[in-house]
Design a protein around this nucleic acid. Structure first.
Lengths: 344, 344
DNA sequence: CTGAAAGCGCTTACAG
DNA sequence: CTGAAAGCGCTTACAG
């Protein structure tokens, strides 16, 4: 979008409202001595002419480094921590403001507040953005980059960053099949999340290709939480056909499964193989260390920041969805079914 | 520091330099048509009069929310993640800029850059700040709050936030003693860190009060890393007097010990009790879940932000060191020595 | 309530 | 190089 040669000034707005510059200035500064009628007329004209205050224009100067908002929908977890890490490391000149959205504000207030505070772009991690919020960001001229949105239909228009989730689900399941497992369960993420759907399809594709279609009772979906792993793992152990391996939707769920196994006296990997997803810090710190599908989360954070900066600079981006490669990382939580202990 | 009634304007500087306002303006805007002599005279006078540009003043307006820099000295880990979490949640109106210091810039450049970018205060987590950096922040009028600095002597003047580490070390060790342990090892943090020293003293005090002074070979210090736990745990298992319990300097180290134990076939808590420190997210996700000394890390992040904002507003703070209470959280990684399994 | 007028802080084209 | 002068965008005390 080419910038218009001159930005709107108070004089423009005053002329179109048929009032003096002084009156417009008063409205802007929230003075009391303006009639409600005049005030609302001026306010709508300010909006219409897309008036940007002097201080905001100054803040847009090259001298002031950009700030980018990284919005979380919940507390930092091992997954979002990695993305934030990558965003923070990405660009020395882009300050990353981390915040947790409370949804207390209305969409317009929220977006305008961000613009007024000097944000140049917004990166939303696993958020559920409404159509109003997307519209408000657009009106505030704030570009948006989403990472793993939880509600696909609404956010389809936004620029997004993700990873090859289908391939990840496929390779994780193939790894377990190659070890000799046949009763492989999927303990995944929220059914509405696109990333979860892709992983599930990868799992199903691998199972079908191996001639052992997934048993319906072996597929469970739920939030990406540790407790899901504890509960889901326990539920799977109660099945008549107990799985010998569980492919999980994220490392946190996998750690929950590890705990469910320990509580039952089920040994990992001797009695049960477990595969995580993400390769967050906790994967390496698990006992046994987790075999997991690595998502390049830090790189994804970095790509999101660089994409956001390009959008903020008015550049076009080639692709509306950047997808980075996943990779299987084999550690100690997987083995052939019935394998003997003895690993290091 | 009471703000002077009026900030320096170009006119003031022009008068004291004996040049016109126009010339000063040219210097500020980096125009070429100013003689080097005049330029350097004006520049030093701008510095001397502490001139703040209009845009910077505007950025200081109440309308623009404060931004606070949270400086990490390394990648986000479970400990610093919790503090960041608390800082982000603390004040709706204070934007938290997270960054990892690279030390590429000289101290003055770094501090002035932060001030120019609109930061109002700096919070440093487990950093090693030099005297130059402290001085540069002070000259840039940026208040500093430190959390668990790694080098105590240099940072003694700074306002700090911490927790009752001595009490934490004491209560953790007393818990193990009460369970019946006598051979209790300490696998702690860096010897130079004040928080580590306090925990070690608490451990020693408890041991001495119980009449079982700590064996020197049972005390090891090192970085707050997972690998320290793996290596340190293995080293302790090789001792002639193998400990029956290990009190660790942080949850990450404790998870390393869990893994060292698993690799040796040592069962936790039946053969070995393990106590962590911090109560980060990974403590709950460990298998078995960790008994640990909870530091209120989120609260510490929140207190740091509120203190930083007060200092930025020119208020005096009552105390140069705020200390929050630690608390023992008993989970599944501790039991009486030689206890039988059977817990849930 | 409203706006003409004075004023503030800054920038810039231009005469010297 | 330098600065007087014109001008820009905005604010505010005050007259009506």
């Amino acid at each position: 979008m080419p910038a218009s040669p001159r930005r709107t000034t108070l004089a423009t707005v005053a002329a179109s409202a048929g009032v003096s510059v002084a009156t417009v200035s008063k409205v802007l500064n929230g003075r009391g001595d303006v009639s409600p009628v005049t005030r609302s007329l001026v306010e709508s004209l300010l909006e219409e002419h897309d008036y940007v205050s002097l201080s905001q224009r100054r803040r847009g100067d090259a001298a002031v480094p950009a700030t980018i908002e990284v919005e979380l929908n919940a507390d930092l977890n091992p997954y979002s921590t990695e993305i934030v890490q990558g965003a923070v490391r990405a660009e020395a000149d882009a300050a990353i403001v981390v915040s947790i959205r409370t949804n207390a504000d209305r969409a317009g207030t929220w977006a305008r507040g961000l613009a007024a505070a000097g944000r140049r772009a917004v990166i939303a991690i696993t958020s559920e953005l409404t159509a109003e919020q997307l519209g408000a960001l657009s009106r505030a001229r704030l570009p948006l980059v989403v990472i793993d949105p939880l509600n696909m239909p609404q956010t389809r228009g936004a620029v997004s960053v993700g990873s090859t989730n289908f391939a990840g689900g496929l390779v994780a399941t193939q790894h377990l099949l190659a070890l000799g497992h046949r009763r492989i369960a999927y303990l995944g993420g929220p059914a509405t999340a696109a990333c979860n759907q892709a992983r599930l399809h990868g799992y199903r594709a691998a199972m079908e290709a191996a001639g052992v279609p997934a048993t319906p009772s072996h597929v469970r979906e739920g939030p990406f939480h540790y407790q899901e792993g504890v509960k889901g793992g326990a539920a799977l152990f109660d099945l008549p056909e107990v799985p010998t391996a569980i492919f999980t939707g994220c490392d946190e769920i996998a750690l929950g499964v590890l705990e469910a196994a320990r509580a039952r006296g089920v040994r990992v990997p001797e009695d049960l193989s477990v595969v995580g997803f993400d390769d967050t810090q906790v994967a390496k710190m698990a006992s046994p260390p987790l075999t997991t599908v690595r998502q390049p989360l830090r790189e994804m954070g970095g790509v999101a920041v660089r994409t956001a900066l390009r959008l903020a600079a008015g550049e076009r981006v080639d692709s509306h969805h950047v997808e980075l490669a996943t990779e299987l990382v084999v550690r100690g939580s997987t083995a052939a079914p019935g394998a003997l202990p003895g690993r290091s």
